[in-house]
Design a protein around this nucleic acid. Structure first.
Lengths: 205, 205, 205, 205
DNA sequence: AATGAATGAGGTTTCATTCAT
DNA sequence: TATGAATGAAACCTCATTCAT
């Protein structure tokens, strides 16, 4: 009864329809939590958003916090996969970073993954926090790995990969500020500026 | 935690207090809102934190949103003044930026000015949002001004001051991330790293 | 008065009840609102009066105003039906009016349909007011119809039916005044006097 | 400290300015209570309406109920005097009743003296209720007296004066109903209809 | 005479959660 | 699998009232 997520490890066969009720709920929850934050979204809101009743949500998730955690984890995994694929093309590093930047700016414009995790702390259990933290780390790790490779290749100067990865994400978060959005007309332009600024620190150009 | 000081109604006997009640309330509110966010802090919490009753809080602030707005405005002003004073010493720019960075990291460690403003949007009136936005801008403007001067002096290479100011703040926000806090043992060290990274982008060294 | 039946959450075990919970609530609400007026009756009072919790009341009615409106509408409909049936017997008009009068005096003695609608205005939405106004009109219309027939039959002299209907109700409302209640010992006597007075105006006797 | 109303008996010399603070308060209170009812009007509302503070209101009136009572008493006395003067002209009775009717309709249009006293019961003390009841009786008594005289003069057929007085007031209250206001375009017309209807019952015409 | 500051009690409403079906 | 009915706790806010000045 308490066992959910029955998928075997690894990527599931894509033919399977993934619209089981719990996934429908998670999808709605992600959207709502991202747009309004944990506290403002009620379980009723989530239920209504996906055409089931509150009791149904509770049938699949023991508490609101659990629903939240599951949602975040899935979302982070999604983002991680996207970053992953963008980072592993054949382009030079600077171009790959640009791709990630543009995608991130476009996607994050109305969400806010970060301020999110902060709200989290007081609302979910130790264990849940831990899992989210790990998922977050996984997102960063892809970037760290790529940076480490570039350092080894002498493509960039020696830097601490974790630090550089965080700096990268931090600069991307600038895009959230309304005043930054006034400064640039297109995501592309914003991405260009951010990458140029970042790249200058990574190299000696 | 559940023990409230009981005071009977009516004006309290004149004790020469140096702080007015509304300021006491604002102080408590700032602390609580920063630590827990708008939604999680109840007006009762604020009242209890400063030894008055809920009704007293409502005597001074018409709504919770108004209390929140006033708190934020005062806090931002406080930060602005601090940044201001650090930025106007006689040291070279890099050192002044370092001072700001260190102070900011130390102060923000357990607060979260940023994730804050996000929550804001859904909770306060248009007008209140506008005032906060302005106060935020004022905080940035000090930095912009200093950067502009440095550009004019050829102390740093030509950059867009608003962009550079936001980038500075964005990098400082890295400090909030728990994983960054694991990376460095002291604020000073973190500040040094951030400033070095930032400075490299501003100059051609 | 302070003793509430405690029931644990969840659907109560199936007892074959003939009345649905929302009807139970409405019944209690009608009684309380009539006796004490909208403002004085709290949602808690209503809940307690029918052995459920406040939250249950809100489960069925979105707001206090909505509960009020529904109550009034049902009550008016009840009265309308009663008047209706009394007015459509085979007796002569005067006797039928007497029946209505007596029933009304007996029923309204401790309620106050009228002062009610006044309070209403400031408490409910435009739309709700509109619905109540319509329900009120329907109550009067039965009387208007009967009077119009009587005019056509020459049973009474020509009068404006709406005016005559309102006059009838207005005279019945005399019964509410405590000083009138001192004047007569029985509803029957009061009704007789009122009908005689009214009838004299409708005829040339 | 508890002594208010310092005027010597009899009508006060009209030159005296009667705008003492307590009178200002009463005036504002009457207006507000009439328009919105007892419960909806807060002591703050009254204070604000006459430019003083709540504490000032409490300086003059021990409780809200007392303020209410005083207001009602003064208002009733005002009405009583007006009715009185209209009833004691030299015109025939029917015309005098018409004058009262028209004045009443004009004045009561948006107030509602009656439903008022009902709200009262649960809010003021026994004693206060008693005083209001008496004031109300005094209003009726003028009419009763005039009717009794007319009976004695054979100007009208023999009726119970108290009953007739109440019937008169009851018919006037018809004017409050919005649907009646739709029926007639002017107060004069409404008064004419009501008086004709009433008069027909009092006489054998 | 008048007021500013404070309170306690209570009101409406929301919401996570539970339980029988 | 899914739900309708119910609840308890807590949130925001109002208001009559009091008291020192």
């Amino acid at each position: 009864m308490t066992e959910k997520r029955r998928r075997s490890p690894g990527r599931p066969p894509t033919t399977q329809k993934n619209t089981t009720t719990d996934q429908v709920i998670i999808h709605a929850a992600i959207r709502l939590f991202l747009n309004h934050g944990y506290q403002k979204v009620s379980v009723d809101d989530v239920a209504e958003a996906c055409g089931v009743t509150k009791a149904t949500v509770y049938y699949y998730f023991k508490t609101k916090a659990e629903l939240f955690t599951e949602s975040i984890l899935q979302m982070m995994e999604r983002i991680r996969r996207q970053i992953d694929s963008l980072l592993h093309s054949e382009k030079p590093l600077k171009d790959r970073l640009f791709d990630v930047a543009e995608a991130h700016l476009r996607a994050t414009m109305d969400i806010d993954l970060d301020g999110f995790l902060r709200e989290t702390k007081n609302n979910v259990s130790e264990n849940q926090t831990h899992m989210m933290r790990q998922a977050e780390e996984r997102m960063y790790q892809e970037i760290e790995v790529v940076i480490e490779e570039a350092v080894n290749n002498n493509e960039i100067r020696p830097v601490s990969p974790p630090f550089a990865a965080h700096a990268f994400i931090a600069l991307l978060r600038m895009g959230n500020a309304p005043s930054m959005q006034e400064l640039f007309t297109a995501y592309e332009e914003m991405a260009t500026n951010i990458i140029n600024f970042y790249w200058r620190s990574l190299t000696n150009e």
